[in-house]
Each structure stands twice: as structure tokens, then as C-alpha cells.
Design a protein around this nucleic acid. Structure first.
Lengths: 214, 214
DNA sequence: ACCTGAACACCGTTCAAGT
DNA sequence: ACCTGAACACCGTTCAAGT
């Protein structure tokens, strides 16, 4: 910690401190003031490196994508379905690694060189699958948008338990306004295995890709 | 405005003021203090109705879902594909109506009675499509997660223009690290029609649903 | 060139009073 | 029962100095 404070001030050191703060105390704890004390400097010293709070948050996206794109993202000897599965799993891993910063991925297009390389990796997999050139960009967005949306739903609580008001639910059931819930009650009472659900979703999307072939 | 301030204080009035603030000045402008002055009261008076800032934001989700679920969401005389298309379009409409508050939908599970009715509507469409009971909840999440993720990407800027550094991109192209981008250049330079792209995505997912039939 | 310090206009929330 | 006012510990950012 004291060692970290002593390393020379740099954009990277600032962003890493921001990401660390987000992971440890939540995205709301990432303030210019908190990041500044983390790197051992006054808040105003940060502005020379990151310009503004908004730019700092954009920078967190770069850092996350940087570690999300290991060198193992390579085409050599891996079929396109396994490559897409790898991308899908990577999105979820990233959400678990950075649960509160993850949402920032929805704020900016893929413009950094790491981001573009990642998109290219997906493009190549779709091309290898036989998807016509004209449909590749759309299917890339379809696939990654689903993966990011699923991961965000998990870490942000949309898929969470959710304390349903039992009284209200019984009233709705009695009023017959949720007939499908009644029919599916057996399945809705079971705990969901989110890993297998995601896997099944990805397999469905891979089938979609295979169907989009010429 | 003066009329609005005069109406009796209530949870609903407070939430509507919050949503109005979000739409007009962004989610960041929704502070306890701003909402309070909007309804003509002192910040601390809100706490009796909404408990905390977090609860206030949860309440915004209820209000959004409430207007998202018009009475026209009915099964009568509409085939399951059209019903799912309606849900998909509704998600995007909602994002455009409440561009900054929309992201809150990822924060909480569907627990209010409006939310549950909406989920039931999708369940019923999937059942009518012939999807086996055991797969209906998963496919509901697959479908809505994609729609919400797409809409969020649009309003939050992930699908935005994105000022790519031309220098960096040329360097990547020269280095051969983005081969698929080079091959797809013709398509990547075209402006995207986000309406038709979403429509095509939804049709692909409907095909997936049809395939999931017994 | 790089950093500090004071100041401005904000936050959410606690607590003790008021009516 | 419902609301206010002062206070506490925070925000991002500006501007003028310091070295």
C-alpha cells in the first residue's frame, strides 16, 4: 500500500486504483477524492491524467477489457463454437471479477484497441461458422449483447431472489391474472442453476449462428 | 407546476417527480433534495414515503413498468409471435421514454404485480408456441434479457458512433491484428439502421422459440 | 511541469424540534 | 402524524498559488 503510493503517478496507476476501489467498496465509492488518496495525491492532481470523473470511468472499461483479452484469445486450433463459448464465459467471468464496474461496459462503444481485437475475434468465429459477411456485424452484436445483458442481470440483481409479496402473489393467482405462473408453478419453485442456464442459452445462440449459414 | 406542488404528498407523487427529473435532467439529477423541492417539501419529508434513496430508485422501476404494461397486453386474437414482438418493441419504447432511468431495470427482479403480469404474458406466448413447460422460464429470460440489453446498449451509448482513433485503427490493420475488420470493411463503414437490426434479431429469436417446440 | 489549498455548489442521512 | 432546520460527512470542479 505504501509501496503503491510511492510509484510514480500515471494514468494507469490511477485507473487501477479506481478499479480496485470499485471492486472493494462498490462503484459509488469511486470518487475523485477517494482515488486521489488511494494514489497518495490531492484530488486536483488527477485531472492532468484523466480529465474528468466521466473519463476516469471510461478508463475503467479499458482496464477491464485489457485483462479480459488474454493472449489465449487465439484462433489456432479451436473451432468457432468453442471460441464463441470462450467469449461468452469471459463476459461472465469479468462480471464476477468486477461486479459493480461491469455496468460501465454498456456506456461506451468498443473503440480501444483491445476492444476492437475482441470484436474481431468474434467476427472471425462467425465468418468461420459460415455466416455471410453482411450478417456478421449484426450477429456479433446479438451474441455479445445477450452475454453482457445476462451477466449484468446476474451481478446487478435482476436475476436475484426477489422478496415477492406472498399476499399479493396469492391475490393475483386467485384473480386469474397470472395463469401461466400457475401452470408453471412446479418449475418456478425450483432454484435456478445460473451456470447451466447460461450454457443452454449460449448453445441456443450457437444453433442460431449455424442456421445463419449460407 | 404550482398546481403539482399543491397536490397532497404521496409515494406516487414523489416517484413521478423522480421519474420526471430523470427524463428531463438525467438520472444523476434525481437527488433527494431535487425531488423534495419538486414536490414542494423539505428533503427529510420524503423519508416517510420512500425510506431511502435506494428505495426511491426501486420505485422508479415500478412506475416505468406500470406504464409499460398497457391494457393492450392481452392474449385475445393475437398469435404468439406478434405478442413477443410487442414485448420486444415495448422494451425499446420504454428505453426511449426513460433513457437514463431505464438502466434501473437491471437492478431488481420482477416482483411487483405489474412486472409479474408482464412475465406471465411472455410465459403464455411461449406456452402457446409449444415450448415445453420446463423450458419456458429460461426462454423468457433469454428473450427479455436480450431485449433489455439491446435497448440499454442503444440509450447508454454502447452502440454509439464512438470516435475511434483512426491512427490506432490503421496501425492495427497494418499489423494484421484485426483481419476480420478488414474483410468486413464494406459493411462496417455503412450506417446501421438500429430499428431493422433489432427487428431481425427478434425474428431470429422467434425462430429459436419455434425450434424449441416439442 | 506538476501539484496543492481554499472555495463553491452540491450530495444522503441523523437527530432534535416543532406543530 | 407529519414536517422542518441544523448539522455531519461527503461529492466534482474552478481558480489562484506554489515549487
Amino acid at each position: 500500500m505504501t509501496d503503491l503510493e510511492r510509484q510514480p503517478l500515471s494514468r494507469t496507476a490511477i485507473l487501477d486504483a479506481g478499479l480496485r476501489l470499485a471492486d472493494e467498496r462498490g462503484l459509488a465509492a469511486v470518487s475523485m477524492r477517494a482515488v486521489a488518496t488511494e494514489v497518495g495525491v490531492t484530488p486536483m492532481a488527477l485531472y492532468a491524467y484523466v480529465g474528468s470523473k466521466a473519463e476516469l470511468l471510461d478508463g475503467l472499461v479499458d482496464r477491464m477489457l485489457g485483462e479480459y483479452l488474454p493472449e489465449s484469445f487465439t484462433v489456432a486450433g479451436i473451432g468457432w463454437p468453442d471460441r464463441l463459448r470462450r467469449v461468452a464465459d469471459g463476459a461472465r467471468d469479468m462480471a464476477r471479477r468486477h461486479p459493480t464496474a461491469f455496468t460501465l461496459l454498456f456506456d461506451r462503444p468498443a473503440v480501444t484497441s483491445d476492444a476492437v481485437r475482441l470484436v474481431d475475434f468474434v467476427y472471425q468465429a462467425l465468418l468461420d461458422a459460415g455466416v455471410p459477411d453482411a450478417h456478421v456485424p449484426r450477429l456479433e452484436r446479438l451474441f455479445t449483447t445477450f452475454c453482457l445483458g445476462y451477466a449484468l442481470s446476474e451481478v446487478n440483481g435482476r436475476f436475484g431472489a426477489g422478496t415477492v409479496d406472498p399476499r399479493g402473489r396469492r391475490a393475483q393467482a386467485a384473480a386469474g391474472s397470472v395463469p401461466a405462473h400457475l401452470r408453471l408453478a412446479t418449475y418456478l419453485d425450483q432454484a435456478v442453476d445460473w451456470d447451466s442456464e447460461f450454457e443452454a442459452d449460449v448453445e441456443d445462440l450457437l444453433a442460431l449462428v449455424a442456421r445463419a449459414t449460407v
